[in-house]
Amino acid sequence: MIETQGIIVSNKPAAESIHRIEVETERMELSKPGQFAMVGISNEDFHLNRPFSIYRQKENKLTFLIQKRGAITSRLIKKSAGTKLRIIGPLGNWFSDAPAVIVAAGSSIAAFGDFIGRNNSTIFYGAATKYDLIDIKADFFSTMDGSRGFRGNLVELFMTKREQSDKRNLYIAGPAAFIKAFRNRIDDDLANRCCASLEAYMGCGFGVCLGCVVNTKNGYRRVCKDGTIFPLKELLL
């Protein structure tokens, strides 16, 4: 991991309240699937950096999908090309890039950029409406209002197609409530080969502040450093 300066090279809406922001960094190690970076706005008042999945990376150029959540993300999605950012990364553990079945809720599709359109993976992708989906090629879509694909929630869509999940790794990402709902709905066989990438409010992002812990069968674990990816069965959500 390194700390470096990044400059926004493009910032475009990718869906309702999600922006695709490309950042050219001075230097960056190559990230692995599912890793993230801490991002802060340089030259602005004190704020904690915010964690974002590295959606795509080409050499020093990183692409983030940033959803408007609070004060800092609201500011970030309004920043124009040329804005200087503080970038710390790549951070966290990573997914094996072997073919996998992926279940991504909302903006958490950002954790799976490396799997989209490649290597025999099957992608389940859901959001509230079609306007909340970014434009990607997924195998199965769900929306709560039925405006695209399956009408209803993503967990239910996955259950109707669970034969798709054969023996490949199963990866999920989304808010804690989604991961909990998913775990409660699936059987042990699925749970045993499922890994979940967690979202968390982080202080540092590199394992020092101990602010982002999650309760697991092995005690409190740091989402940023011990995760963000955990075997689903270890999590006590």
Partner: peptide
């Protein structure tokens, strides 16, 4: 020591509060 349960940190104007 196991520390406190989460939430353990929160950002505040020009600062942060922790209860690790």
């Amino acid at each position: 020591r196991k520390g406190n349960p989460p939430m353990r940190i929160i950002e505040t104007p020009s600062g942060m509060i922790n209860a690790i």
